[in-house]
Design a protein around this nucleic acid. Structure first.
Lengths: 202, 202, 202, 202
DNA sequence: AATGAATGAGGCTTCATTCAT
DNA sequence: CATGAATGAAGCCTCATTCAT
């Protein structure tokens, strides 16, 4: 047998999830009807409750899965303490780019997990907190301006990422690399014309 | 007559609006029930329909009023072309501060008009567009780094404002003035420690 | 004073009635709203209840007034017994024509009083009964075919009048005189071509 | 399985239709409540919307089905051109009788489809039109009086049928056969006593 | 003679969820 | 593993009618 036992059930579950993600992302939780999800999955309503205990349950599962994956990704971009000072911009750039890429690759999940669920609040705080941690060491090393509140900077970065994800990434006006470069440069050097290194970039 | 004719009706309408704004802001459109709104306004359900044609209608009115006021405020912070170069940071600071203050003073309306309604998309685009217009002249005057995309910078500013409004303003962790100063400094000079003017600020 | 006391009230009452008749006739009882009636009469809802105790009351008044007038008219077209045999067709023609004219002149009232209200049943029975009375004597005098049921004939006439009123009179495709002539001829002589007198008519 | 799949649903749908027809016919559209229909069908309100999209939808379905059947019946009573002249009365009699029988057998549907819905206008026009077509050939063959307007005659017949259906058929005062015979005789030969053939009928 | 403001009552419809098979 | 059929709960909205002035 090419397909083991339980395969069909898993298939159905996946189809339900896929349909639900699409609906939630584009219609929001309330406008999404269980009846639509099951129809799109080629099933009937009772079948839905074979796999999920409620409409809220499937929404939560989608959100939690996404947040889990996001947290994992966040671990990979956390800078170890003791990093070489001159490597900081590079590391920051890598982190931002990776984050952008992750969100761009999961637009529907991002819409749900970052813009619809109240849980988004928490994950954004975590994200901001990680950024703060990453930045604080450099600031204490005199690398960053001492009067800047790293908390505020971190929130700014989160806001920038949120906004650009929607306005540039989802609309494909720009890509993760380009965006990350510009954002990092902006945050590092500011808008003023003097002393920039942007010109030296490829 | 202590109060003119039509006063009572306007009062009721206002109470309905106030209740609706509070409910919409804190429960969202779908969880907000007309029955709750009218109860909070000390009325019965049919009275609601004396003043608004539907639940959607009152939501739209709230949103449109807010957007209208936001647009008016945006006009007042638009920089006239031909501004003195050395005044730019001051003007930008004023603009950002005014914007923050406006949002901080209308938290519920902001929640509705900036984070709940799909119409928010449009007004944010308008906001970003206004910022772009404001910045472009300075960039062409060599004031801002030529390789920076003002569109992206504008979107960043919008994202920053969105995020800080929620995380700092609504939670009263910070106020409009302080936030505006930090944001403008960050965007103007970046995070790096060299050549800052922040220290000279009051 | 050109207008005596109470004039204004009567005026309002008339306007309400006029509006109600038009609405009832064209929308039916249920689709007609008190709010529409008063608006068309240039009044407010409570004013309505100054003159009529309910929506049903005004409807009934309209119906009863019309039926009263219809009954009066029916009296005028009732044939006295002992009429000369050769005058019968003339008298029948007169009766039918008068009836058509009455209905044509009151299209809205007819729509209400003959086609909408359940009371129509009664008045139509009365109408049919009058016709029966009118015809029976002639039948007993051998004037009409003895095997024909005058009850049925009377009902036929009522049905014809109903239908032609709607299809010809209201649409102005034909007028009372022409219709009456054709109907009476048809009923008197039938459709067959032999022995008609229609040709001799003007 | 004693009954095939889908049987129960169809049963419920039929019960809903039956209840609806009865309510509509006797209470009219507006006084008929969905809640009554479902109660009579032994179901709850949401079940109604499993089978019909709205109260209006079920009404329309009832009307359309009836009109469809009526149209089919009308086809069967349409006289082919080239019919033998002496057969005309027989054919007309058959047609009228068939029509009466159809209406008598469907009193509730007739009440709805012929007296309640605005759509009745159309079907009556179609009926009149068919009658006109049937009569015109005979008139041109000299069979019917040349000065009679077949349009008017047709409308008369429609009116007669309408009226007798209500006053005789529904009340069971008379039956289709008897009514048809009298109506046809009346229209063919008129009320006058001379030259009738009614006496020769069984 | 009339109005601004409000309400009681009730109907239609939707949706997540479950029962029985 | 899945379905046909059904329901509980609840929300939106309408309309005739009335209160207080």
């Amino acid at each position: 047998m090419a397909r083991e036992k339980g395969w069909k059930g898993k298939e159905s579950r996946e189809r339900l999830l896929a349909a639900a993600i699409d609906e939630f992302a584009n219609q929001g939780f309330h406008k999404t009807k269980v009846s639509t999800i099951v129809t799109r999955a080629g099933l009937t309503q009772p079948a839905f409750y074979l796999y999920f205990s409620s409409k809220e349950a499937i929404f939560d599962e989608v959100v939690n899965d996404f947040h889990e994956r996001l947290r994992m990704m966040m671990k990979t971009i956390r800078m170890e303490p003791g990093i070489e000072t001159e490597d900081v911009p590079k590391r920051v750039l890598f982190a931002v780019e990776t984050l952008f890429r992750f969100l761009a690759e999961n637009p529907n999940l991002t819409r749900i997990g970052l813009f619809q669920t109240p849980e988004a609040k928490k994950i954004k705080e975590e994200l901001a907190f990680m950024v703060v941690e990453n930045l604080r060491a450099e600031q204490q090393a005199g690398y960053f301006h001492p009067d800047l509140s790293m908390e505020i900077v971190a929130e700014c970065l989160v806001g920038i990422v949120e906004r650009l994800t929607v306005s540039q990434l989802f609309s494909k006006k720009s890509n993760a690399e380009s965006l990350a470069a510009q954002v990092v440069h902006l945050l590092m050097y500011g808008m003023f014309a003097h002393g920039s290194v942007l010109r030296e970039k490829p």
